[in-house]
Design a protein around this nucleic acid. Structure first.
Length: 858
RNA sequence: GCCGAAGUGGCGGAAUUUGGCAGACGCGCUGGAUUCAGGAUCCAGUGGGAGCAAUCUCGUGGGGGUUCAAAUCCCCCCUUCGGCACCA
């Protein structure tokens, strides 16, 4: 205790003790309430970064605190071990992805251990282990059999130089920062350093990305759209509003109707165009139709027409553009007249049909009705191409005063209003009109109510090596056949070559591809696509409940005990994909009869990024702060304190070299305080000061102690770690100023010092344990129940009553906490300063807020 | 364009849950003590303006409102950040 604070030494000591005593290894205990704390597991990129440190520190504090509140804590960690960077390392440096990954894991594991996190390492998992992905393959085959996994052809981004498929995230869009590989394979968009030069290019080699039609596997997320959306309601108490808003946004529900517009002439057997609209109330205002260039009818509509050649050129030009280019800023709305017409089923008017670059084939029916008066895009297009505009919605009240008319319209009127020029529907409010029009088309049989979603099925195929093989065999006779359970896992072969060319190495590996059909036994070929790594991260939280179980994905009983995750913690960047996919996958498992879980994560905490000099830490900016350097310099406890103190958890945290020194100074002061007062308080172990006995300065300190316990407890419950630490600092300041004289004083001093140590423990566990030990206690703080604050002591505090005159603070007076209204009023009226302000004036009103203030209105 | 979050000292932030002393705590800065010196540590000060001072006065993005009392509640506007976006 005589020595100074030596974090390296005590941190190693306590990490050793915790490990030796197996303190963090847990098992189910039906008698105790469980609490499952989970942080998003890392991608084993090689080194942990400050973002991880922040994430895992938050989780660790919650885990340690909840444990002192008597919960049986599950706090596991593992590795999101499949993914592209491993493959890139293989291509660039000739290291096998498996070797690279496992070496990274062991390095990062050491780093995490040095931070003193209370993980149950016996539950560690790596998703690239066949004993893990085996179950994912099994579930895939179950999904396949139920039609929840299916194969279809779709257009993908293709890099001709890398000869590989790129996810949308790997096509450069716009902006300034390149992402660090983190958890999950997707995540950040690739952003171009400057201007638009690199838009539409491959993120790695900067070649022009092409579009290519390819077969791939999909999960039927759309089967669960409504439930995923409904649960946004259920999660609203435990999840941040903005995450739910993003998910809702992403699902993109819109309600409306599909309506058939008869074609003027039969085209290739087709007599109608079916459109989707959210504004059936504007149907009388349709003056043209638009069809997507990809629509099979598009070419047929122009056949034999005057502008056939021009139209075909247009179709080909637009089709060649990538999604990215097509929606890029500044792309003009363009179109070409097909020469064909259809009839408005309501007004009977003749309506020309255009092919345009802004209608999406994938959404709705790929054809839209255009109402330029009430849709801004249609309005612009109509102006450009000289098409008529017909007003059919008038603002409420405007009909008589100043109705909309064409001459005065500078833009579309998109708000609700009253239907006009709409035959029998005229005069209806637009909201009612929508319903009436839908009812009408339904009753006449040329349309129906329809809900559309933005959400698409999840394309899980990756033409990559380092991932979970999709357990499917192609047989000329039987087609796509799932690999039977007893043949699982389909192991990823390790003897492959990495050239970076010609697509997935698996596709060239005859020994892997050649197999027999599980059904008929004839020669067959294996699927060589692997799964998106988001599939692994969609169920790892379930695996932790029984990580070594070898008869299934998880043990039902254990999942029943531990799940759902009570507190999930991670970066806001996974607000949509990872969290939505996990929710989907959980529901699929439920419907496959494997568990009874509707939602995987009851509560979600999204922490902000760690930034430096106003930008995300990144290699290219050279502003990376290495956690190891900091641990070496200041110790893990200091890093942890700073991570929590520097900003509220949800906000971005600005790294500051001076700031971390402040945290270090704080821990040093705590250490010094204990060393300094130890000789005085040594003999007073386990005594409790008696409130009625002690004199003023000590009493005040004791009150401060209990107020601090209350404050820190409340703050930890609400994850306000920054203010919890601030409160401990305040207490430290108060104790440092305190000079004990009597035995009672010393007893209060002892209680104060012990409180600081114990309050600090969840945040800075090593120094907490060390000081606790040096205070003469043998038990560890890990399982010591949390402190209770004493209501009697807190409430015995004298209160400062603020005295206001006309709402302005003029004075204050210290009173007993149990003073009543009348006493407070009298104290105010007899206060010298107050008297000055009210002298000679009539008192109109006196407001007394018990325990707080008196306001005199004159 | 739509949706969401946020604007408080030189900086990170507190007080918003419950309307009640704005600026806790930390960083930085200034002065002092200690030191041969530096570092470390300790003490004092630190929103703007006025005053020798007690003290007065202004002040939470801007404007209005409710209230005895507004950073906090209501309305309008501005700015920043994040998400979605030719989704019909």
């Amino acid at each position: 205790m005589k020595d100074g604070y030596n974090p390296q030494q005590i941190e190693e000591k306590w990490q050793g003790i915790w490990e030796e005593k197996k303190l963090y290894e847990v098992s189910e205990d039906p008698k105790r309430k469980k609490f499952y704390v989970l942080e998003m597991f890392p991608y084993p990129s090689g080194r942990i970064h400050m973002g991880h440190v922040r994430n895992y520190t938050i989780g660790d504090v919650i885990a340690r605190y909840k444990r002192t509140r008597g919960f049986n804590i599950l706090h596991p960690i593992g590795w999101d071990a499949f993914g592209l960077p491993a493959e890139n390392a293989a291509i660039q440096r000739g290291v096998h992805p498996a070797k690279w990954t496992y070496e990274n894991i062991s390095q990062m594991k050491e780093q995490l251990k040095r931070l003193g996190f209370s993980y149950d390492w016996t539950r560690e998992i790596a998703t690239c282990d066949p004993s893990y992905y085996k179950w994912e393959q099994m579930v895939f085959t179950m999904m396949f059999e139920r039609g929840l996994a299916y194969k279809k052809s779709s257009v993908v981004n293709w890099c001709p130089s890398c000869e590989t498929v790129l996810a949308n995230e790997q096509v450069v869009v716009s902006g300034a920062v390149l992402p660090e590989p983190q958890f999950g394979s997707g995540g950040n968009k690739q952003l171009a350093p400057d201007g638009n030069k690199e838009i539409g290019k491959c993120w790695r080699c900067k070649s022009e990305v092409q579009l290519k039609e390819m077969d791939g596997w999909f999960f039927k997320v759309t089967e669960y759209t409504e439930e995923l959306l409904e649960c946004v309601e259920k999660l609203k108490d435990g999840w941040p509003e903005r995450v739910l808003a993003m998910q809702k946004n992403w699902i993109g529900k819109s309600t409306g109707a599909e309506i058939d517009f008869p074609l003027e002439e039969r085209i290739d057997g087709e007599t109608i165009l079916r459109i989707f609209t959210t504004r059936p109330d504007t149907v009388f205002g349709v003056t043209f139709m638009c069809i997507a260039p990809e629509h099979p009818l598009a070419e047929k509509l122009v056949k034999g027409k005057e502008k056939e050649e021009e139209a075909l050129r247009f179709i080909n030009r637009v089709k060649k553009q990538s999604d990215v280019e097509r929606v890029a800023e500044g792309t003009k709305k363009e179109g070409v007249f097909t020469g064909s017409y259809c009839k408005n089923p309501f007004s009977g008017e003749r309506v020309p049909i255009y092919i345009t670059n802004f209608v999406l084939m994938e959404y709705g029916t790929g054809i839209i009705m255009c109402v330029p008066a009430h849709d801004q895009r249609d309005f612009e297009f109509a102006k450009e191409y000289g098409l008529p505009i017909k007003v059919v919605i008038q603002p409420v009240g405007a009909i008589h005063e100043s109705p909309l008319h064409l001459g005065s319209m500078e833009r579309a009127y998109e708000e609700p209003g009253v239907m006009a020029n709409s035959g029998e529907f005229s005069g209806l409010p637009s909201e009612v009109g929508k319903e009436k029009v839908i009812e009408y088309v339904q009753s006449k049989g040329f349309g129906e109510r329809k809900v559309n979603y933005r959400l698409r099925d999840w394309g899980i195929s990756r033409q990559r090596y380092w991932g979970t093989p999709i357990p499917i065999v192609y047989c000329d006779t039987c087609g796509a056949v799932p690999v039977p359970d007893e043949e699982l896992p389909v192991e990823l072969p390790l003897d492959v070559e990495f050239t970076g060319k010609g697509g997935s190495p698996l596709a060239k590996l005859e020994s892997f591809i050649k197999t027999k059909c599980p059904k008929c036994g004839k020669d067959a070929r294996r699927e060589t696509d692997t799964m998106d790594t988001f599939v692994e991260s969609s169920w790892y939280f379930l695996r932790y409940a029984s990580p070594d179980f070898d008869e299934g994905m998880f043990e039902e009983e254990k999942v029943k005990y531990w799940l759902p995750v009570d507190q999930y913690i991670g970066g806001i960047e996974h607000a949509i994909l990872h969290l939505l996919y996990s929710r989907f996958y959980t529901k699929v498992l439920r419907d496959l009869g494997m568990c009874a879980l509707d939602e995987p994560f009851s509560n979600l905490l999204t922490q902000g990024m760690v930034i430096k000099d106003g930008a995300k830490m990144s290699k290219s900016l050279g502003n990376i702060v290495d956690p190891d350097d900091m641990i070496q310099k200041f110790g893990a406890d200091t890093v942890r304190v700073f991570m929590l103190f520097a900003a509220p958890v949800q906000k971005d945290l600005d790294w500051s070299d001076e700031g971390i020194e402040g945290a270090y100074r704080f821990l040093n002061r705590v250490w010094r305080l204990v060393s300094d007062v130890f000789p005085q308080i040594e003999s007073l172990k386990n005594t409790k000061p008696d409130l009625s006995q002690i004199a003023e300065p000590a009493k005040e300190l004791l009150i401060k102690v209990h107020k601090t316990i209350k404050k820190v407890t409340d703050d930890l419950e609400r994850f306000q770690f920054n203010t919890a630490i601030a409160a401990i600092m305040e207490l430290l300041n108060a104790v440092s100023r305190f000079e004990p004289h009597t035995d009672d004083d010393i007893s209060v001093l002892r209680e104060s010092v012990e409180s600081i140590v114990r309050l600090l423990y969840p945040v800075a566990p090593h120094i907490g344990e060390e000081l606790w030990e040096s205070l003469g206690y043998e038990e560890t703080l890990v399982d010591k129940p949390w402190m209770e604050w004493d209501r009697e002591i807190v409430e015995s505090a004298a209160i400062t009553v603020v005295l206001q005159v006309n709402g302005k603070v003029r004075s204050q007076v210290i009173m007993d906490s149990d003073s009543d209204r009348e006493e407070m009023k009298q104290a105010a009226l007899s206060d010298e300063k107050v008297k000055n302000y009210i002298a000679g004036k009539e008192i109109k009103k006196v407001i007394v807020v018990p325990r707080k203030l008196v306001n005199i209105v004159v």
